[in-house]
């Protein structure tokens, strides 16, 4: 903890001492971005839109770098289409009845954005690569317990009565994007992000019964959800 506080103080000192231009002297930006994800990507067809929301503050600490912190929120109701599940994702649901689940995800990350100087960009404008760490909490609440009769992949008969699955994980937050400035104040940002969990798939689950298959399912869904996020954001260059 001491080390963390010390590092934080050093970072604040660097920022305070930083003699950098920003965009016309504006270093600090507040941004909101959102992404729309198609249900198929996460393997659990649900109701559109599957939106995730992200709020971030960034500070340009030099011509090349900016640092930032972001909070992301995602919430949606899954609605399982048996056919789709059968055909594309998991035969596991083959004989199940319809069910839905509520998904909730909170993500906090700190990151460094590296603006591509070769292209002539000065932070916080232009093409950037993002490197950071994230912490994520995710939870699935199943509203209807299901009974699985079996599938041709699995001989056993499963009976899953899962109520809730949660996950706490940390990992690397990587991304690439591009900031545009409009009217000297408004920041438009688009790009894509990848969250790589560390340790991978570190679920801590609270399931009622046999969990293996559901857990695998959750893993894959989680992986898909974090593997590729496209975002489009709008922000304000504050000062």
């Amino acid at each position: 903890m001491k080390k963390f506080i010390f590092s934080l103080l050093v970072l604040i000192a660097i920022i305070a001492k930083a003699d950098n231009p920003g965009y016309q002297g504006l270093h600090f930006s507040v941004k909101y971005d959102c992404g729309i994800m198609h249900p198929i990507i996460v393997g659990r067809p649900g109701k559109l839109p599957m939106l995730y929301h992200n709020g971030a503050i960034d500070y340009a600490i030099s011509r090349k770098f900016s640092v930032g912190i972001s909070y992301g929120f995602m919430h949606y109701n899954s609605h399982i289409d048996t056919k789709l599940a059968n055909q594309y994702i998991y035969d596991f649901y083959g004989s199940s009845s319809d069910f839905s689940a509520k998904y909730l995800q909170h993500t906090v990350s700190i990151y460094l954005k590296d603006f591509v100087r070769k292209r002539g960009f000065i932070a916080p404008v232009g093409l950037y690569y993002k490197y950071g760490l994230f912490y994520q909490y995710a939870r699935n609440n199943y509203e209807y317990p299901i009974t699985i009769e079996g599938s041709y992949y699995y001989d056993e008969t499963y009976k899953v009565e899962a109520r809730k699955a949660t996950v706490h994980t940390i990992g690397l937050a990587l991304g690439v994007g591009r900031n545009f400035v409009v009217a000297n104040r408004i920041l438009i940002d688009f790009g894509m992000d990848v969250n790589i969990s560390f340790p991978p798939f570190g679920f801590i689950e609270q399931l009622n019964e046999t969990v293996d298959i559901e857990r695998k399912y959750n893993y894959r869904e989680y992986l898909c959800r974090n593997l590729l996020q496209l975002h489009l954001g709008i922000g304000v260059l504050a000062f």
Binding site: K17, D19, P21, Y23, Q24, G25, R63, K118, R119, G120, F121, I122, V125, G126, F180, V181, N184
Partner: peptide
Amino acid sequence: SRELNNSTNPVLLNSHMYDVLHQVKTTAK
């Protein structure tokens, strides 16, 4: 003298102009 692999768009020009003028104005800490 900066050779930039990019088109001369207004935002890029603003970025660099401000940067250079800032260096002209600022005093060494």
